[in-house]
Structure formats: C-alpha cells, structure tokens
C-alpha cells in the first residue's frame, strides 16, 4: 500500500513535537526559522558569484553581512535552492535563495555559542 508522505496531519504534528523536543530538551543552540527577508546581494564574477550584503527581517531588524561562510546548493527534487551561511560578526545565519521564485528566506539563526 502506497501513500504520499505529504499533507498528513499526524505526521506534521509529530514532526512539530520532535522539533520542540530538540529545541528545548537537547539545548539546541540553533533557532530554526522560516522568515521572508529582503536582501541586498552582490552578483559578480569569480568563485562566489552571489554574496548577500545586507538583509532586513520582518521585525524591521537590519543585518549587515560581514562574511559569507559557505554557499551550497540544496536539491529539492528537480528544484534547487541555494543555502547561504553568513555572519554579521556576532551571529551566524542561514539564508535560502529560491532561484526559481527569486525569493529569500531566513531559516536559521545561531548566536549563543559562548
């Protein structure tokens, strides 16, 4: 018997509980988000052809990127999105660029390593 793995309420509920458990019980130092963000990015020639420079979060906070740590593609079926791991010198962030829709999302923030 086959069934698609999407859109099942119970599975989503269990996934949410698992994420909560990871977040609080195991003292995860990353916060996983899914925020649409406005990004100023530099497109240029070279080994790193796209570099986010600055982004604005829905709460109005603006972040200046001081370093692009790593950019790597994330395949999602036939579609590819690009993960940009960046920092502002105090916090690490992950931005996801959907090259098909031309949208950016902030999906991770990690700032309490100390």
């Amino acid at each position: 018997m086959l069934e698609t793995g999407r859109g099942n309420g119970r599975a989503i509920h269990e996934t949410f509980l698992e994420l909560l458990k990871r977040e609080f019980l195991n003292m995860n130092d990353e916060t996983f988000l899914n925020e649409p963000v406005e990004v100023i990015a530099l497109f240029k020639a070279g080994h790193h052809p796209c570099q986010p420079v600055r982004f604005k979060r829905p709460n109005g906070k603006e972040v200046s990127v001081t370093e692009l740590g790593l950019r790597h593609p994330l395949p999602n079926g036939l579609k590819t999105v690009h993960a940009f791991d960046v920092t502002d010198g105090g916090t690490d962030y992950r931005l996801i660029f959907d090259s098909e829709r031309l949208t950016w999302r902030l999906t991770m923030e990690a700032d309490h390593y100390e």
Binding site: M1, L2, E3, G5, A11, E18, N76
Partner: peptide, 19 residues
C-alpha cells in the same frame, strides 16, 4: 527524484522519517 526523497513511500513508514 523529481519531488524530493521519500515523497512516495509505504504507509507503514509514514512516521519514521523524522527519526
């Protein structure tokens, strides 16, 4: 391959993917 890993799988393993 087209829509992502484990888009279609057995109903028996519906809740195992998070682990």
């Amino acid at each position: 391959q087209r829509f992502g890993e484990r888009t279609v799988h057995s109903a028996d393993t519906l809740n195992t993917g998070i682990y």
